[in-house]
């Protein structure tokens, strides 16, 4: 009872109680009714028991039978995927672009750091193989 509830009227409660507004329920009646309800509920419970077996076969047994295969397979797949990622990331090391010596020479000429008449000498000095190819 909360504090906001009205106070109980003891006198009224006494009169109501003594007026025997509802007849007492005897144990014999309760027992008979209990048996009646149990009998009426038997088909519903049997139906549930049958449905329960089917449900167990289709859900739990299915999961249990496949868990022995699927769990190791899942773990192995995850390990393999991790290994692949590790190998691939190791192969792709970032590298600075390699500039050939002839390219450096040509860039030097283009930016006037090297005069054009000295270009061939520069190329020969810097990259003998490339210079030989250009003379031919």
């Amino acid at each position: 009872m909360s504090s906001a509830d009205p106070r109980r009227d003891e006198a009224l409660a006494h009169v109501l109680r003594e007026s025997r507004l509802s007849a007492p329920v005897t144990p014999a009646r309760v027992r008979a009714l209990s048996e009646r309800i149990a009998a009426a509920a038997a088909p519903l419970l049997a139906e549930r028991a049958g449905a329960g077996e089917v449900r167990q076969r289709t859900v739990w047994d299915y999961a249990a039978s496949w868990s022995g295969v699927l769990l190791p397979a899942g773990v192995l797949t995850a390990l393999a995927a991790g290994l692949c990622l590790f190998v691939l990331s190791a192969q792709r090391e970032p590298s600075a672009p390699k500039l050939s010596r002839s390219r450096i020479a040509l860039m030097g000429a283009a930016t006037n750091r090297v005069s054009s008449q000295n270009l061939i000498d520069f190329l020969v000095a810097s990259d003998p193989v490339a210079a030989r190819g250009s003379v031919r």
Binding site: S34, A38, L45, A46, E47
Partner: peptide, 17 residues
């Protein structure tokens, strides 16, 4: 009771009837 246990339903009846 959900699994269809008759005895359990009997217990529920006994408890609340």
């Amino acid at each position: 009771i959900r699994d269809g246990n008759t005895a359990a339903f009997g217990q529920l009846i006994e408890r609340y009837l």
